[in-house]
């Protein structure tokens, strides 16, 4: 398991880890900027970068300008914000459950949020994101609880394997239900045709402004919980002995996860594996100190999501492959590699 580093632990050798951290974060920032720029340029209507730069500052009412300003900028910003949310919610869950395989997509949380959203639209007929966002939060929370309970059948606390299985089973059931609703309800169908697989297409500023606030709150909560999570990584009893208010921290994490995963799913639909792969990389670069892992994830996860989205725009040009499909195809092998590498506790 990840070696736990606590605030009270002896100082690590500064050279090695410090350097890796620095370059890791610097690299992530650079990648993020580069990918954001690419995201503005690439698409069914490719626009060269210098054009993009010009249009950014001097919009001239042309088609290209409208593509950049009305479509790609909100899309890019949305992906950045949502990527952050997904990455951090995964990191939080992995830390809390001490389970390297925890990810809001794998554990059915995103699926729960999506079912709640689709159901709300089908039942109430309203399609404004401000409306179904609340359902997304509730769905995310419900999904987390249901998977947790299903994974603990017969035992007091769920092992990583059972959680993953429970999550998958629930996700499958939920996606079938989502399909049922979509196929039988015109409103839901129109609004969510692409969204159901995880797609950033056609989600403009309204969606962005709706979710950005909640995501920011969730991220702030996560950052504040960093030190407490470090202490809790040694085990619940040890954490308590170190003065951590376990119940409060757990509630805080659940709230942050519900906000982040719920908002992300409401915005672009259920996405798998971002919350799994990026925190793993962050821990490899920064050690397991959550005060570093969380910020690193906040920067690297959006880069990953942007990369997936860009690939999706290119691979089937001029059609687009939804980003959710790409994260599944690219993230699945990471999941498998993790399973093979780690000594996963047995049932």
């Amino acid at each position: 398991m990840t070696a736990a580093a606590v605030a009270a632990a002896p100082p690590q050798p500064r050279r090695g880890v410090g350097r890796r951290r620095f370059w890791g974060i610097a690299g992530s920032v650079a990648a993020l900027i580069l990918l954001a720029a690419l995201s503005l340029a690439v698409g069914s209507n490719p626009i060269p970068l210098d054009e993009v730069w010009r249009l950014l500052w001097t919009p001239d009412g042309s088609v290209d300008a409208s593509v950049v300003h009305d479509q790609r900028i909100p899309r890019t910003l949305l992906l950045v914000v949502v990527g952050s949310a997904l990455g951090v919610s995964g990191a939080l869950m992995q830390s809390l459950t001490r389970n390297p395989l925890a990810d809001p997509g794998v554990l059915g949380i995103n699926a729960g949020a999506s079912l709640a959203v689709v159901g709300a639209v089908a039942v109430f007929g309203l399609t404004s994101i401000w409306f179904f966002l609340w359902f997304a939060f509730a769905g995310a929370a419900a999904g987390a609880i249901i998977v947790y309970v299903l994974g603990s059948t017969g035992r007091t606390s769920p092992t990583p394997v059972r959680l993953a299985l429970a999550g998958v089973a629930i996700s499958m059931a939920v996606s079938s239900l989502v399909q049922t609703v979509i196929l039988s309800n015109q409103n839901a169908f129109n609004e969510f045709r692409f969204w159901a697989a995880g797609s950033a297409e056609g989600r403009g500023f309204p969606v962005l402004t709706a979710v950005a606030g909640f995501i920011v709150v969730g991220l702030v909560i996560a950052l504040c919980l960093g030190p407490a999570l470090n202490a809790l990584a040694l085990g619940e009893e040890t954490g308590r002995a170190l003065g951590v208010r376990v119940g409060l921290v757990r509630a805080g994490v659940m709230a942050a996860v519900a906000l982040l995963a719920g908002a992300a799913t409401a915005a672009i639909g259920p996405i798998m594996f971002v919350g799994l792969a990026v925190p793993y990389l962050a821990r490899a670069l920064c050690g397991s100190d959550q005060r570093w892992v969380l910020p690193a994830t906040m920067i690297a996860a959006p880069a990953a999501l942007l990369a997936a989205d860009i690939v999706g725009r290119v691979i089937a040009h001029p059609a687009e492959v939804q980003v959710g499909i790409l994260t599944a195809i690219l993230g699945g092998p990471v999941f498998i590699a993790l399973v093979r590498r780690r000594r996963i506790e047995a049932l």
């Binding site: 794998v106 993953a164 998958v168 599944a328 195809i329 699945g332 092998p333 399973v339 093979r340 996963i344």
Partner: peptide, 16 residues
């Protein structure tokens, strides 16, 4: 358990 977990990963990739 490793079989099941790997299966989940492969399933996700293939669904994509």
């Amino acid at each position: 358990f490793r079989l099941v977990l790997v299966g989940i990963g492969v399933a996700a990739v293939l669904q994509g």
